[in-house]
Nucleic acid binder design. Structure first.
Lengths: 213, 213
DNA sequence: ATTACATGAATGAATAGTCATTCATAAAAT
DNA sequence: ATTTTATGAATGACTATTCATTCATGTAAT
């Protein structure tokens, strides 16, 4: 039986693709649970139902797995966020969307939340390979929202978007870290989202002209 | 020679204390530079000018060193912060003091900044020993400032101090992380401090009644 | 249709190296 | 002289990575 027409190649590619992503998601799980350094390759292999050696057919080394996990998962979030933002034009609503989307994503995918934390603060100390492009893209969205709001005149012009994006991301990140580690009484996603948004939009100072919306 | 009157014990304690703290500060340096998992005990020993084995006369194991570093250094910051707050009564000024004090401390002691990051997000995943008392004390200060402001009526009453403290700490922490990793154009401490404070106090929305102080 | 050969993905045991920790010994102190 | 403190080489446990081998699947020959 002769058979090398595209369909077979596709099937082949599918299998490979599946194995690749099986490993990715196994790794996400394992890294999140044990942390990068404590995770063993054999744990990942077991979780992915694959032989230890197989992993090295798809990745160069342990760190390469982490980086792939990170880029891939953050990439997904970026796509999702951009889709949700769609052609929303109101910078206030945009920030609202970003906030809830981020918190929801982190709540739904605790593993990812932790991988981000690890990758961000641990590993680039060891390996200086700054292709954190997806992440920069992701927080860049915040900066853009703020810039837009400044153009429309609804956001204060003295706010520096580059600082604000870090401030905002840091806040969201810590809030979801604590949440995932369940170190604190549980608030609902809505409560947290509201709090963060109102703190940033209107600040914590009592305004003399405090009237609803 | 019989000699066990207090002074000798003091001398003894001094010496031990010296070696103990020599190791602590060596460890702070090494952990910050390499991260907990990549740091070698022998690195710490070398940095402290002490034999590898000596370390085990003062600490139970590697993790115990990290925890001690963390508790001890955070403890220092708590003390410093409380001293600076003194009997300041204005919640707005208090937040200002906390903010600049935190950023200054992190700038001055980059090592500590990183150790906090590591300990906070990496290790308590592995070892569930929650004697992070000092840290909770530290962010508790933020919560208290906010509560106080709510009592005086200058801070909005709908803000939840427990969420706000995380939001605020997260923001400060991320800002100093980026700063220390020098991933971004350098802003001055004053600029950052101003930005964070104004974002939190007054929010980013343009206020119709925007008048200085 | 059946058999023989080829391919390369997958396997997992073996390798090779790394370190945290220990401990026999030495130095200091009393 | 005895006890306390310090040393650093040796130990032993642990794991990322490799690689010789297997095996399922595809191809060619008859």
């Amino acid at each position: 039986m002769i058979s090398l027409f595209p369909f077979d190649l596709f099937i082949l590619a599918m299998k490979a693709e599946n194995k690749h992503s099986k490993i990715i998601s196994a790794a996400t799980k394992v890294f999140a649970k044990k942390g990068f350094f404590t995770a063993r390759i054999s744990d990942i292999a077991k979780e992915a139902k694959v032989a230890d050696g197989t992993i090295y057919l798809y990745f160069n080394n342990k760190y390469d797995i982490l980086l792939s996990v990170f880029e891939e998962e953050v990439g997904k979030i970026v796509t999702k966020t951009e889709k949700l933002l769609g052609d929303e034009e109101d910078p206030k609503k945009m920030l609202e969307i970003y906030t809830t989307q981020h918190l929801m994503a982190m709540k739904k995918n605790k593993n990812l939340a932790e991988v981000i934390q690890i990758e961000l603060r641990q590993t680039n100390k060891v390996i200086k390979d700054y292709r954190n492009n997806k992440f920069n893209e992701y927080i860049g969205i915040i900066a853009n929202i703020i810039k837009k709001g400044q153009q429309t005149g609804i956001y204060k012009s003295n706010i520096k978007p580059d600082i604000a994006k870090r401030v905002y991301f840091g806040a969201l990140d810590e809030v979801s870290r604590v949440w995932n580690a369940s170190l604190e009484t549980h608030y609902t996603l809505e409560e947290i989202s509201d709090q963060v948004l109102s703190m940033f939009l209107a600040g914590i100072l009592q305004q003399p002209d405090d009237s609803p919306e």
